[in-house]
Simulated scan of single mutants.
Amino acid sequence: MYPSPTLDQLQIFLTVVETGSFSAAARTLNRAQSVISYAIANLEAQVEMPLFERAGARQPKLTEAGTALLEDARRILSGLDVMRARIKSLKDGLEGEIALAISVFVPTDVLVGVLRDFRDQFPSVSVALTVGELGAIIDVVASGKASIGIGGAPTKLDDTLVADRIGHSFMIPVVAPDHPLARRDKPLSITDVRDEIQIVVTDISGLTKGRDFNVLSYRTWRVSDVTTKYHLIRGGLGWGGLPASLIWDDLRQGHLVQLDLEAYAQGEYPIYVIRKLANSPGPATRWMIEAFRSRLSNCPDETDFNTMLATAGRSEQVTGEPVK
Rank of each mutant, 00 (worst) to 15 (best):
T319A: 09
D192M: 06
H179Y: 07
M49D: 02
S297A: 14
N42G: 05
I12G: 01
S103C: 07
G320T: 07
V175D: 00
N298D: 13
V318D: 10
D8A: 13
T155R: 14
W239H: 02
E268A: 15
S189C: 05
R314T: 10
Q33A: 10
M83Q: 13
Y230W: 12
W221A: 11
F22C: 04
A142G: 03
T15K: 08
E48M: 10
G167V: 02
R219N: 11
S23T: 14
T15I: 08
C299A: 10
I98Y: 01
T155H: 10
D159A: 12
F118A: 05
T67C: 09
I289L: 08
A182S: 14
G241S: 07
L90S: 14
A312C: 06
K61D: 10
T307E: 13
G254M: 06
M288G: 02
V323G: 01
T160G: 14
R286K: 15
A153E: 15
E64A: 11
L129I: 08
D203Q: 02
Q46T: 07
D212I: 03
I289F: 06
D92H: 11
G66R: 01
A278G: 08
G240R: 00
G132D: 03
R219S: 13
S143C: 10
T191N: 13
Q33F: 01
D139W: 10
L216G: 02
P243A: 13
G93T: 08
E95S: 10
I76G: 02
R86V: 09
D249M: 06
V35E: 07
V257N: 00
M308L: 14
S89V: 02
Y38A: 12
L90Q: 14
G113H: 11
K276V: 01
R286L: 15
R165G: 07
E316L: 09
S37L: 13
F13H: 02
K91C: 11
L29Y: 05
D260Q: 11
S4E: 09
R74A: 05
V47F: 06
V162N: 04
I87P: 01
G241N: 03
D249T: 12
D109Q: 12
I36G: 01
E53N: 11
G66Q: 01
L94E: 13
G313D: 08
A25Y: 03
R183K: 15
K324D: 04
H231N: 13
G96D: 15
L115M: 13
L181A: 03
P107T: 00
L80N: 09
R75F: 11
L10V: 05
Y272D: 01
E321D: 02
Q266I: 10
H168Q: 13
G93D: 12
A25D: 00
V141H: 05
T202R: 14
I233A: 04
